[in-house]
Computed example of a mutant assay.
Amino acid sequence: MKKFTETHEYVIVNGNIAVVGISKKAADELGDVTYVELPQIGRTVKKGDILCTIESVKAAEDVYAPISGKIIEVNNDLEDSPEIINEDAEDKGWIAKIEISNPSEIEELLDEEPEI
């Protein structure tokens, strides 16, 4: 099940794990991604906390945690190849996996990505 936030993060929920990244629309709007500051594994985030920062040729943008929980994995491929976000934002360009601590927050997410 894929859900979205108003700020264009996506969440793919698989059991109690959420795969998080930015939407294709957001990646297109950012332009060429040049750097991703990955979140720290083991860090606990609350919905709405800054998860990480993405830098592009146009701007630096914060990515917000769409769901509360503990970061259990990050996409280390983005350190050497941040452009993966431009190439495949909603699959290979995922940023982090979060162990969900409040499943009811999933219901607050959008079924479709909002317009930019």
Rank of each mutant, 00 (worst) to 15 (best):
E83C: 05
I12W: 08
E6Y: 08
D62R: 12
E99I: 13
I54Q: 00
E99G: 01
I67D: 05
I106S: 05
G93S: 11
M1F: 15
K92V: 01
D28L: 14
G15Q: 11
D28S: 09
S101I: 06
I106N: 05
G31H: 13
I100T: 08
D62K: 15
I106K: 02
K25W: 14
V33M: 10
H8M: 03
L109N: 04
Y10C: 03
V36S: 08
I12C: 08
V74E: 10
S23E: 06
E90C: 02
S104N: 04
I100L: 14
D49E: 14
L38R: 13
A60T: 03
A26S: 05
D32V: 01
I98Q: 11
E105S: 13
Y64R: 09
A89N: 08
V36Q: 11
E115S: 14
I41E: 13
A59L: 02
I17N: 00
I106G: 07
I54A: 05
E113K: 02
D91A: 13
L78W: 12
I67N: 06
N14Q: 09
E115P: 04
T34P: 13
D32R: 13
P66A: 03
D49Y: 11
D49P: 01
T34C: 09
N16M: 04
G21A: 08
F4S: 01
E87S: 09
E107M: 06
I85Y: 10
D28A: 14
E113G: 00
N86G: 09
E87I: 06
L30C: 11
E29T: 08
I95L: 15
S81P: 07
